[in-house]
Design a protein around this nucleic acid. Structure first.
Lengths: 153, 153
DNA sequence: CTTGAAAAGAACTGCCT
DNA sequence: AGGCAGTTCTTTTCAAG
């Protein structure tokens, strides 16, 4: 199930997390590895499903979406409305960036972006609160966010 | 403050969100734009700070970290412990992937990854609960996650 | 904006240790 | 596994329309 990484693989992933644009050649020079050897290791990590892909990082504030809100949603009429129906409806909302099915006090965690607070209120009232089966909703407005490396193997 | 995107810029960002690895030439072909024109637009988006960068997407389950937990943390002794002290301590925990300063019922939202539930319990008891100023803690265990495009300008 | 081109660099392939 | 050499493709920059 899990993939056996050696020190070199870990070093490669650590470096790519810092800068995903660097080439296999540049990376290899840092690790005292040749360009093809580095490239083959990256390919192997991709094929093993460890390195899933590369995604672009957008500044939503620069795009005019200055408000990010995290919602915790508890379904009210469980059993009456299927999780699939709820998920279909929530993922169809344009302002929704991430939908997480979770275990705990809430059933779902949703990341929503809006232009400003009035815009967020519109999304909340007309889109979120009208979702099928929605019960208790908790909201947290994002002030600042910091990403950390996290553990590797 | 915000950047004026035209339809072509939006199409480029939409395409790059689907696949961040595609070349400017391939992208231009889809949009009926030449390779240099597409390349210049991507550069302009980067320089404007809209396209912040590219990051790799890792499968933490494949790396042996099958458990992801979202924590809501409320500080107990506000004023006695500075936010900076708390942030410094929480970002120093290796298992912490994201730290979000938020407004609402909680003061911080934290994304934590662990090998399994016993491992998560260890992190929670020895690392999280011992943080300076930590008060109420709420946890949600991730079952599944779906990322959506989100709005663009 | 376009096309065309050229130089540099990165990605990919085969072969050999 | 890793390195070397070579080919193909992309990036990056230019000139000209």
């Amino acid at each position: 199930m899990s993939f056996a990484l050696d020190d070199l693989d870990r070093a490669i992933l650590r470096a790519l997390r810092e800068d995903a644009t660097q080439s296999a050649g540049a990376l290899g020079r840092k690790l005292h590895l040749s360009q093809p050897a580095t490239w083959r290791r990256i390919k192997r990590l991709e094929e093993a499903g460890v390195l899933v892909g590369r995604r672009i990082d957008l500044d939503h504030t620069a795009l005019g979406f200055g408000v990010t809100v995290f919602l915790g949603i508890k379904l009210a009429a469980k059993g009456r409305v299927s999780l699939e129906d709820f998920e279909r409806a929530v993922t169809a909302i344009p302002e929704v960036q991430v939908v997480q099915h979770v275990l705990g006090l809430f059933d779902y965690r949703v990341r929503v972006t809006a232009r400003d607070l009035p815009d967020f209120e519109r999304v909340l009232r007309r889109r979120i609160m009208t979702l099928p089966g929605v019960g208790q909703v908790e909201a947290n407005v994002l002030l600042s966010e910091e990403r950390r490396p996290g553990p590797l193997g």
